[in-house]
């Protein structure tokens, strides 16, 4: 293999790592906000799927990609209301609520999708294209990897420091983390726990839905059943692996994206491995990662425990 070819492959692997990473990053930061507020939301997969479907529907119906982005955000927030209603108001077990949401989202999106396309060829749309940043994108290696990506990719990379600032440097973030660690402290101060949980879950789920929408608008042109294919669960694994901290989650998401990018490229290069094994790599890695993890110091103390005033 010539050196030039090798270099091109490496650049391509890195560039697609960033590309694969960013939809996950939106969803992971959203789920981080939700879980730091003490709600163990297992409905990431369903929320991403709904966001992706809403984006598809609006993109094909109106032709406007930015309206489709908005639709994904709104759909995510609506799913957040359902989760908050079940966990904060009804105090259903958080795991059950999330599983229920996934099953509901899977059924509803498939039904609406099949009704939408019934009796005609599936409408498709053309999604976001790369936006090369002038000058910066001309830098060798770094340019094509970092500065020649979809517009929303740049936003996703900025979301990490923004979420960090929100959580650790703002009054809102302090209260939000308090929800996860010691909600009673808020309650005795006369601040509503339930209202803050609703706000946190809606904000988090809106971002999670945006992740699903970006997955659709950035990298596909059509919807299909099980479109998100387990990415919502990868997000949850990344959260645990990242020890519930923005930087840790960023590293974990990057690692998963790198793995997926590597698998795709191995296929392209024509490695003699069954492609199903390559597709299965992220899931194998997840199990291995969770087996090896021993520290969970960052897990919010009241994560997954419904708050009830006694």
């Amino acid at each position: 293999m010539s050196q030039l070819f090798q270099e091109a492959i490496i650049i391509s692997i890195l560039a697609s790592t960033i590309r694969i990473m960013t939809p996950l990053l939106f969803s992971a930061m959203g789920e981080l906000i939700t879980q730091r507020a003490g709600i163990w939301n297992m409905g990431v997969e369903g929320t991403m799927l709904t966001g992706a479907f809403a984006a598809y529907l609006v993109a094909t119906a109106t032709g406007s990609l930015w309206l489709a982005v908005l639709a994904a955000v709104v759909a995510g927030a609506l799913m957040g209301i359902v989760i908050a209603f079940m966990t904060a108001t009804l105090r259903v077990d958080h795991f059950i609520a999330g599983l229920g949401l996934n099953l509901l989202a899977g059924g509803l999106t498939l039904y609406w999708f099949q009704s939408y396309i019934q009796g005609r060829p599936q409408p498709i749309f053309s999604g976001f294209q790369d936006v090369a940043i002038p000058l910066l994108s001309d830098i060798p290696v770094i340019g094509p990897v970092l500065f020649s990506q979809r517009a929303l990719t740049y936003v996703a990379l900025l979301v990490v420091p923004v979420v960090w600032f929100l959580l650790y440097r703002s009054r809102y973030g302090l209260e939000l983390r308090c929800l996860g660690e010691n909600p009673k402290a808020l309650d005795v101060k006369g601040l509503s726990v339930s209202a803050r949980q609703y706000a946190a879950v809606m904000l988090g789920s809106a971002m999670t839905g945006l992740g699903g929408g970006f997955l659709m608008l950035g990298f596909s042109d059509r919807f299909l059943a099980d479109f998100t294919a387990g990415r919502g669960w990868i997000v949850i694994v990344a959260l645990i692996a990242g020890n519930w901290r923005p930087k840790g989650v960023l590293v974990a998401v990057t690692a998963f994206a790198f793995l997926e990018s590597l698998a795709t490229h191995l296929q392209v290069v024509g490695a003699q491995v069954p492609h199903q094994l390559l597709l299965a790599l992220p899931y194998l890695a997840s199990i291995g990662l969770l087996m090896g993890l021993r520290f969970r110091s960052g897990q919010p103390a009241r994560l997954g425990i419904p708050y009830a005033r006694e």
Partner: peptide, 9 residues
């Protein structure tokens, strides 16, 4: 797919 939708609901 009405059936899985009804199941979820």
């Amino acid at each position: 797919s009405l059936v899985p939708a009804m199941q979820g609901i």
